[in-house]
C-alpha cells in the first residue's frame, strides 16, 4: 500500500462516518416526511379517495420544483435554510439539510408511483369491508406496495450516496468528497481508485440488501 493511502486511513474512516451521517439523516427525512407526502399526492389525485385537485396541483408542482434543481445549486440556494436548521453551513450535519430537501420530494414521487400500482379493486374491497382511511393506508396501500417501496428506498439510497459527494462543496465531507479532493484535485490516482472501489462495494451491498428485502416482502 502506498504512503499516500496509509496516511489517509484515518481520513477514510472519518469520511465513511460522515457519509453515514448524511445518508442516515437524508433517508430518514425522506421516509418520515417524503413517505406521507407521496401517499397524500396519490390520495388527492384524480379519481382517488381524497380527490382534491387544487391541493394535488400545488403539491405536485412543489415536488417538481425542488426536483428541478441540480443538486449543487440546491445546496447553495438552501444555505440560509441550512444555517437556521443546522446552525452552521459547513460539515456533514449542514450538508444533510439540502440532502434531505432533495430526498423528500424524490422519495415522495417514488412512493406515489409505488402505491399507484396497488390494484384499485383491492382498495375497493377494503372500503367495502368498512376500513377506515388510516387502515386503508397502512394495511392496504403500504402492505401491498411494500416490495416496490423497498425498491424505491434502495434507489433513493444509491442516488444519495452519489449526491452526498457534492456535499464537499459546503465542507460536508464524506467518502465521495474524499475522492474528489485527494484523488481528483491532487492527482492521487491510487486514492481516487480506492475510494471509488469503496463506493462500488457500498452501492453493490445496498442494492443487494434492497433486492433481498423487496423479494422477502413480495408474495405476488
Amino acid at each position: 500500500m502506498s504512503e499516500d493511502l496509509i496516511s489517509l486511513l484515518p481520513e477514510l474512516w472519518t469520511a465513511l462516518g460522515e457519509t453515514g451521517v448524511m445518508l442516515a439523516i437524508a433517508l430518514s427525512a425522506a421516509v418520515v416526511l417524503g413517505g406521507p407526502l407521496g401517499i397524500v399526492l396519490f390520495l388527492t389525485g384524480r379519481g382517488q379517495l381524497w380527490e382534491r385537485p387544487r391541493l394535488h396541483f400545488v403539491l405536485n408542482a412543489a415536488v417538481n420544483l425542488v426536483r428541478s434543481f441540480p443538486f449543487v445549486i440546491l445546496l447553495v440556494v438552501l444555505v440560509p435554510l441550512t444555517r437556521i436548521v443546522a446552525g452552521t453551513t459547513i460539515g456533514p450535519l449542514a450538508a444533510a439539510v439540502p440532502l434531505s430537501a432533495a430526498a423528500i420530494p424524490y422519495f415522495a414521487r417514488l412512493v406515489e408511483q409505488s402505491v399507484r400500482d396497488v390494484s384499485p379493486g383491492v382498495i375497493e374491497a377494503a372500503q367495502a369491508m368498512g376500513a377506515t382511511p388510516l387502515q386503508l393506508i397502512v394495511k392496504v396501500l403500504i402492505t401491498e406496495a411494500a416490495p416496490t417501496l423497498a425498491s424505491s428506498l434502495t434507489v433513493l439510497a444509491v442516488s444519495f450516496i452519489s449526491y452526498s459527494a457534492a456535499a464537499g462543496i459546503v465542507g460536508g465531507g464524506g467518502i465521495g468528497d474524499l475522492a474528489i479532493r485527494f484523488g481528483y484535485y491532487r492527482f492521487q490516482t491510487d486514492v481516487m481508485l480506492i475510494t471509488v472501489a469503496i463506493l462500488i462495494v457500498i452501492v453493490q451491498s445496498v442494492q443487494a440488501a434492497g433486492n433481498l428485502l423487496s423479494r422477502r416482502l413480495d408474495h405476488r
Partner: peptide
Amino acid sequence: SFNLLANR
C-alpha cells in the same frame, strides 16, 4: 377479480 391482498 377476487381482490385478495397479495402480500397477506
